[in-house]
């Protein structure tokens, strides 16, 4: 299965899906979305590529091993609990930093956002690891 049109199409589709998944992740605090949904979406992008073009192609595009995604996601999630501990003496306490932007708008960055990013990464890694493993075993190419 090596259709040129799929190869070209997926280059863009994957890009768009990953872009939107990150968007979903970051807007998740105020609108539908978040780490779980974003992570499932992002993994979806790579899975469709794997279905269409083979696991190896998808893995190449991913560039990073799924297991490393899991590890970094968990690491980020745990890391995000520490600022609360140092600032307020309580683990997991949300801590926020407000960065003023132009035109009076402010960008609010907080540990929950960092935590959600951790969720995003680990969910992506989990789903990809699961499905890649099974696909490789069943020689889906």
């Amino acid at each position: 299965m090596n259709y040129t049109i799929l190869v070209i199409a997926f280059r863009y589709i994957r890009f768009i899906l990953v872009f939107f998944s990150i968007l979903t992740l970051f807007r998740g605090h105020n609108l539908p979305g978040g780490g779980f949904i974003g992570g499932l979406m992002a993994s979806g992008a790579f899975i469709f590529q794997a279905l269409a073009l083979g696991v190896q192609s998808s893995k190449n595009s991913l560039r990073i091993k799924p297991s490393k995604l899991i590890a970094s996601g968990l690491f980020l999630a745990i890391l995000s609990t520490l600022p609360g501990f140092f600032a307020k003496g309580v683990f997991f306490a949300g801590t926020w930093v407000k960065i003023p932007l132009l035109f009076g708008a402010t960008l609010k960055l907080g540990t929950p956002l960092l935590f959600d990013t951790g969720v995003y990464l680990s969910v992506t890694g989990v789903v990809l690891l699961l499905i890649f493993t099974l696909m490789e075993e069943w020689k889906w190419n």
Partner: peptide, 22 residues
Amino acid sequence: FGENVVNVILVDFRALDTLGEI
């Protein structure tokens, strides 16, 4: 600081549960 209550529960109020889940 979030309008989506579900997401705030997941990543802030009950973050420990979510950490366990992932």
